[in-house]
Design a protein around this nucleic acid. Structure first.
Lengths: 142, 142
DNA sequence: GTAAAGCTTCCCACTATTGTAAGGTCAAGC
DNA sequence: GCTTGACCTTACAATAGTGGGAAGCTTTAC
């Protein structure tokens, strides 16, 4: 199988397959005499594994660990679970950070008239000593 | 004021101040005869504005728009509100994406014993034709 | 036999930030 | 006046992942 067919079959672009090979995430593919990469079903299977792990937000480094565990028939499921749980915690942190941003911004937006006048609590909020300060000022005067 | 003092006062590293200047986000600072950058209170004010916008997850490009609006005394608050709301939508998309990942992963983790045995629904889930497939298999057999 | 499609490597761009190296400047102490 | 250390300057590299493109070779289809 050529790289293009492996790409279609796995959902990973040819570009990225070459990249993953170059950084050692996957083994170097065999080559034809003329230098074309050859992929087996097993290779595609691994690429699909990677594709799903990426879809769940695992980093390349974490995928390296997961792939090693996947290919180790004597792994303990506890080891896999630990990697997955650590990733859930990372996701939680990111989610919380974004939600905090969202909330602050929403608060500012709620207090903005959004008309033709230039007065804007969003800009005052960004310019204030602290975002809370402007919002509180705003609350006091409303 | 030197760049180091401006950095401390604004919460943006000297490195990043130079970067923001290089990409034109902020105006080029005046220099002493020997080439040191000089920052005024007004400059620091703008840097703090940037610092807060960054904290709310605005991209450099969006900050460019916000700064322009901030410095335009005749802006309409509706324009600012539009930028902010567009950003909230971006945040919502990111949050949703992360939450979806989190949920799928949590589902897999919940079905993993996490002991010394090698059987692991997390790995099967990643290796399956689709993540849902393995989970459903798992549900059927549980 | 020629043209098109697909492969190869290599280099660049992106976001935003940090690190490092080589060198100039300023202020304090002696 | 000179040394020292802290601070400044520019320039280049690296990070993570992905996409884009060029130049050139191979394979396939007609």
């Amino acid at each position: 199988m050529n790289i293009g067919q492996a790409a279609k079959a796995s959902g990973i672009s040819g570009k990225m397959i070459r990249y993953y090979e170059s950084i050692g995430l996957i083994a170097s593919a065999k080559r034809t005499e003329s230098g074309y990469r050859i992929f087996s079903e097993k290779d595609v299977h691994a690429l699909r594994f990677i594709s799903r792990a990426r879809g769940l937000g695992f980093s390349v480094e974490q995928m390296g660990n997961l792939l090693a565990l996947w290919q180790d028939r004597h792994r303990a499921s506890a080891d896999v679970k630990a990697v997955a749980q650590a990733h859930i915690e990372e996701l939680d942190l990111k989610i919380k950070k974004l939600q905090d941003m969202r909330q602050t911004l929403e608060h500012l937006v709620d207090h903005c008239q959004g008309d033709k006048r230039p007065d804007c609590p969003i800009l005052s909020g960004l310019a204030a000593e602290s975002v809370a300060e402007s919002v509180e000022l705003d609350v006091e005067t409303s």
